[in-house]
Design a protein around this nucleic acid. Structure first.
Lengths: 184, 184
DNA sequence: ACCTGAACACCGTTCAAGT
DNA sequence: ACCTGAACACCGTTCAAGT
């Protein structure tokens, strides 16, 4: 990649992080290009879709989250590992306003650039889930997709109603208890 | 109201119902005006905000839902009344794509035209909840707002991922079990 | 190769002008 | 009283023209 291109790409990512932090995942791309002092075409050349931009911003974080699942599997007993991971997952889904909703949508949209990361995360969670189910600690009739949907939806509440978001830990606990009930 | 105004209002509501059914609560107001064969100003005169339009479309339904809570309180035992009502509530929140998210947001936005209906529904649910808690059937550390948020969030999953929406009843059951656990 | 910015087709919202 | 539709300030996306 040419040096100026590389510099532009970095500038865009840098500005995008700030703007999306301010305005959420639906932030104006025009605004990002403007503040990065770059033409619209340049933004589109580097990131053909909004999802590609989000992937560049979040891909690393998501990969680490999937890896974290494997680590927890080795270090913690089944139920604790799952709970701990779901907590980290919910935190990740809350990185930017609007992200949680995008993540659920992306799970069934194979064309989205976020699709791969989300499927990987769902599967990582699914493995922790299966382990906890085999240990009889989680009800057997839920799968990784259920988990992903439930906790993303939970995270999305804070996006749309910040004050209710303060109850997040509490609501997390309620849903968690729902998973525990009817185990075995 | 003048006869032509009344006719216009009815036309707008009629078309809005169709368009919002197609495109969700974020449907283009311009499109609604166009298909109702009405100037933009006319639409704005009758419904100054998008929320006012939604209120006109859904207010009746929400009022009935609040009334339904009182009826259930008289006819059913505490836990059954609550479960039954929450089922109806979730159905109402799923009337239009995007509505569930609007409802959570509106709960803490006093200026929204949907605010009154949503508060009324939350309180109606809150009364059924308190009754079930007094009967020792629901954990005591949740309130009406928690309930509203949890089940709206649940409904919003189907908005953004239709196929996961097919699991709605199942996820409903999981959350319900979470409410039951730690009762008394 | 890469960048720019105007062009196009859309929005929501307002408001002067009409009846 | 009420209606119309143009005007304004925004979008996202594309693409001819430049370096």
């Amino acid at each position: 990649m040419r040096a100026d291109a590389q510099r532009n790409r970095a500038r865009i990512l840098d500005v995008a992080r700030t703007v999306i932090e301010e305005q959420g995942t639906q932030a104006s791309l025009r605004d990002i290009a403007r503040r990065a002092e770059v033409g619209m075409g340049t933004l589109y050349r580097h990131f053909a879709t909004r999802e590609e931009l989000l992937e560049a911003l979040l891909g690393g974080r998501f990969d680490r989250l999937a890896a974290h699942a494997a680590a927890l599997e080795a270090s913690h007993p089944p139920a604790e590992a799952l709970t701990e991971w779901l907590r980290a997952f919910a935190e990740g889904a809350a990185t930017y306003r609007g992200l949680a909703a995008s993540m659920i949508a992306t799970l069934e949209d194979g064309r989205s650039s976020l699709h791969a990361s989300c499927v990987a995360m769902r599967d990582a969670g699914g493995r922790l889930l299966a382990r906890a189910q085999q240990a009889g600690r989680i009800r057997p009739d839920v799968d990784g997709t259920d988990l992903f949907a439930l906790f993303s939806a939970l995270a999305s509440i804070a996006d749309v109603a910040p004050s209710i978001g303060l109850r997040h830990e509490h609501l997390f606990d309620v849903v968690m208890e729902g998973l525990v009930s009817r185990a075995r």
